[in-house]
């Protein structure tokens, strides 16, 4: 069993936490509040021993987007209060505020979910969703997709290699490269589709559509903390709403 205090939480406890952050930054308009979540998330990531991959992930996926979003607001957001200028652009105070507010939220929500996917096993998350009512077919689709994607990636690489040896050009001008796309993808699609009939028969042979309740060998445990934490989130959200509306 996993002893790590963060990793050993129930998948839904982790998921609700990401939702909680999302809702909180929507309720509270202050960008400092939204930015403040980021260090908190780093601490949690460190506790879960995923800080390194978490941060490098953020750097790879979020930073450029945040920079573009920020600059676009600063320069193009309509506003009167000009606080500076650069070349043909005018820097407005409204733009600056809009830029901070948008980026702070994208950072908070984006990194909350990035962290979520670092600390949860997809298989466990799917099981958790199944436990709260997602149909077993949905679980089947997700799990089988996760198995099929790497399989088809491998096949597409093989096909591309084969094409090169048969003289289909994968380098050169745009037209040449574009022409290689269709013969790569089509056989992959056709062969995968051709196998579905037999896959269906396999599943039927394994009582896929048998009526009645199914057993699951894969079980998730809910500890007391997993029952308490979601209510803590709800409590804080209610608190924030009251604070917003009445104060």
């Amino acid at each position: 069993m996993n002893q790590n205090p963060i990793l050993s939480l129930h998948p839904l406890t982790k998921f609700y936490f990401a939702i909680f952050i999302t809702v909180s930054v929507i309720i509270v308009p202050n960008y400092l509040f939204a930015y403040a979540w980021f260090p908190v998330l780093i601490v949690i990531a460190a506790m879960a021993k995923v800080a390194k991959s978490f941060i490098s992930f953020i750097l790879k996926t979020l930073i450029i987007l945040l920079a573009i979003v920020f600059l676009m607001q600063v320069f193009f957001y309509p506003g009167e209060d000009v606080i500076g200028s650069w070349w043909i652009f005018e820097l407005t105070n409204e733009g600056l505020l809009q830029g901070l507010s948008l980026t702070s939220r994208i950072l908070a929500i984006g990194s909350a979910f990035i962290l979520f996917f670092r600390i949860v096993e997809i298989k466990d998350f799917v099981k958790a969703l199944e436990d709260i009512g997602m149909p077993p077919t949905g679980a089947y689709i997700v799990l089988s997709t996760l198995q099929i994607i790497p399989e088809m990636r491998r096949q597409s690489n093989t096909i591309m290699e084969a094409q090169k040896t048969r003289g289909v050009e994968t380098e050169g001008s745009l037209i040449v490269r574009a022409k290689a796309f269709f013969p790569t993808l089509t056989p992959l699609i056709l062969s995968s589709i051709a196998s579905t009939e037999e896959r269906a028969i396999t599943l039927e042979s394994r009582a896929f559509s048998a009526p009645g309740k199914k057993t699951s060998l894969h079980k998730l445990t809910k500890r007391p903390i997993d029952r308490v934490l979601p209510w803590v989130y709800v409590g804080i959200i209610i608190g924030l709403i009251i604070w917003r509306v009445f104060l």
């Binding site: 099929i148 896959r199 048998a210 199914k214 057993t215 060998l217």
Partner: peptide, 25 residues
């Protein structure tokens, strides 16, 4: 093609039919 496509160990694969039938753990 004759595998369920959702199990990542042989043990779970073999158990899959029984899970679907609702056999006790």
């Amino acid at each position: 093609i004759q595998i369920s496509g959702v199990k990542d160990t042989v043990f779970d694969e073999v158990a899959y039919g029984l899970e679907n039938l609702g056999v006790a753990e």
